[in-house]
Design a protein around this nucleic acid. Structure first.
Lengths: 185, 185
DNA sequence: CAATATAGTACGAACGTTCGTTTTTGTCAA
DNA sequence: TTGACAAAAACGAACGTTCGTACTATATTG
């Protein structure tokens, strides 16, 4: 939906909490009440934006990676897709900012985010398992540790790229990924 | 100052943008105008909270680590201090959440944060250099890469601990740190 | 005609900020 | 030691704006 697309764009720049009904309505050339009628509450709007983001994320990051052959190629594809996803956003990644913002803010938004993040980590976990299966990773590699390591890498990349605007970020990320893969072979 | 301490606590829970003059005044049992007079603007308040946080961070994370002998012991001390710092906060780390929030929000707050984050990364960088000097790291170790890797690790830890509340986070962090150190030896 | 979407208006609350006034505090002369 | 006085700090009230939400009414569409 067009509203959610604009909402995601706004959340990328201002954070999920920064998306107000009024400003989003203005961006859509709609009345506040007209837009509000679609969601019945701000909380619903935030959750729908999150779920819309998850759909876009799945089809632009995860699905295309699953086309690559399992193992290291798939891992590299996933990381590249993630970086493309982050680059295409106007501001920061909504999941990264929301994860920081909602660490201590109970409610349905947090629960939704928590579910999504666990799904994402499960995805990393499974990709490591398939790397073991095809022999790219050693038999006793710790897949949950791999998920932690890889997600940490992406978070570091996000900060360097989005906040610090460091020109060597890409190099740092590549080197870290190569080392990470080596550690699990 | 007591106001900044309460402000930091609130920012840890709600993010820097979530600290409102009114709510902070209420938390301090002060009038809105009385509190406002100390800062002249919300932006000033946010910056002063950030700088207060940096002072607390320096004296509770960095300074005590510099007492440890240079090299791997100092690195481990720094990481442990960082984790203690994060644990002691009511909510999340203000630098982590602000880094995500202000990646696309120009202004004096962002500039202040950017300066602080660069200082922090420089600190990691220097600690790696001293590890080379004492022979704990190999001669040609990439200190800037080390800073990237270590900060990424801390960001991953922060997400696992604060959002996911994963019970194995401590183990993940230790294993990642051991591997990281090994990679640079 | 019925259903759906948008608009319009209003609401109480909270936002950051300004104002003039009161209270508290510290300093110095008597 | 006290009284006068200036400086600093805190106050309550109000400003205009925006917030999320609740109504009712008007278009649009099938």
């Amino acid at each position: 939906m067009a509203i959610l697309e604009a909402g995601l764009d706004m959340a990328s720049k201002l954070g999920l909490e920064g998306v107000s009904i009024g400003s989003l309505a203005k961006a859509m050339n709609m009345s506040k009440s007209g837009l509000f009628a679609h969601f019945q509450s701000k909380e619903n709007l935030q959750i729908e934006i999150l779920e819309y983001a998850a759909r876009v994320f799945a089809e632009s990051v995860i699905v295309p990676a699953l086309i690559s052959e399992p193992g290291i190629p798939r891992i590299r594809a996933l990381v590249n897709n993630w970086i493309d996803w982050a680059a295409q956003l106007t501001g920061g990644c909504i999941f990264v900012s929301a994860s920081a913002d909602y660490s201590d803010r109970p409610g349905r938004v947090r629960e939704c985010l928590l579910r999504q993040q666990n799904d994402w980590i499960d995805c990393l976990h499974r990709i490591a398992q398939s790397a073991i299966k095809v022999g790219d990773f050693r038999e006793d590699a710790d897949c949950e540790q791999f998920a932690f390591d890889l997600y940490s890498l992406l978070l570091g990349f996000h900060l360097y790229e989005k906040l610090l605007d460091d020109s060597e970020t890409k190099k740092r990320q590549e080197q870290a990924l190569n080392q990470l893969i080596t550690n699990y072979q």
